[in-house]
């Protein structure tokens, strides 16, 4: 059977609105951020805020889920317990993918940023954004959302 929690998140206007509001907050605090996308582990886009409308949330969500799954396989291969985040560094900017806390790996936050801010600040603000989403949606470790 398929898992309905991710589908419910995908289809919940409240869930999407909270994700978007918090990703907007991330953009405000960190102007280097070009886009924020929440994707399901199986590659569907849930919510996005994009400065650059040439980005396709659908395509990037599929790619983020593939990348997180591959990174998770690498972690398992070396017997590390999990993969929390993944960073793509480029001369054009940085892409961060992180498992949204409290979703048991079911949701991924993708942040795309140019190189104008320090990487440490970017990572910290992205983490804070992920935690705010978790808190506002009462995401618990068993992956259930109360709202």
């Amino acid at each position: 059977m398929h898992d309905d929690s991710m589908r419910l998140w995908r289809e919940s206007p409240v869930f999407k609105a909270v994700c978007r509001a918090e990703m907007d907050e991330l953009r405000n605090s960190t102007p280097s951020v070009q886009a924020g996308i929440i994707a399901t582990a199986d590659g569907f886009d849930v919510a996005d805020v994009c400065v650059n409308d040439t980005y396709s949330p659908a395509r990037l969500s599929a790619m983020a889920s593939s990348m997180m799954a591959l990174a998770g396989a690498v972690a398992r291969e070396v017997e590390y317990p999990n993969c929390e985040s993944l960073i793509v560094e480029s001369s054009g900017g940085k892409t961060i993918m992180m498992s949204l806390p409290g979703t048991d790996g079911r949701l991924v936050l993708l942040v795309i940023a140019d190189n104008s801010a320090s990487f440490g600040m970017l990572l910290m603000h992205a983490r804070q954004c992920a935690h705010r989403i978790q808190k506002r949606l009462n995401l618990t470790t068993d992956g259930a959302a109360e709202s």
């Binding site: 398929h2 991710m6 589908r7 582990a41 199986d42 889920s65 799954a69 079911r106």
Partner: peptide, 18 residues
């Protein structure tokens, strides 16, 4: 790289994403 499948069109628990 199988993860939990959320797509109701497919009656399966996990699906390969990479």
């Amino acid at each position: 790289t199988d993860v939990i499948n959320s797509d109701a069109r497919y009656n399966k628990a996990t699906t390969t994403v990479a």
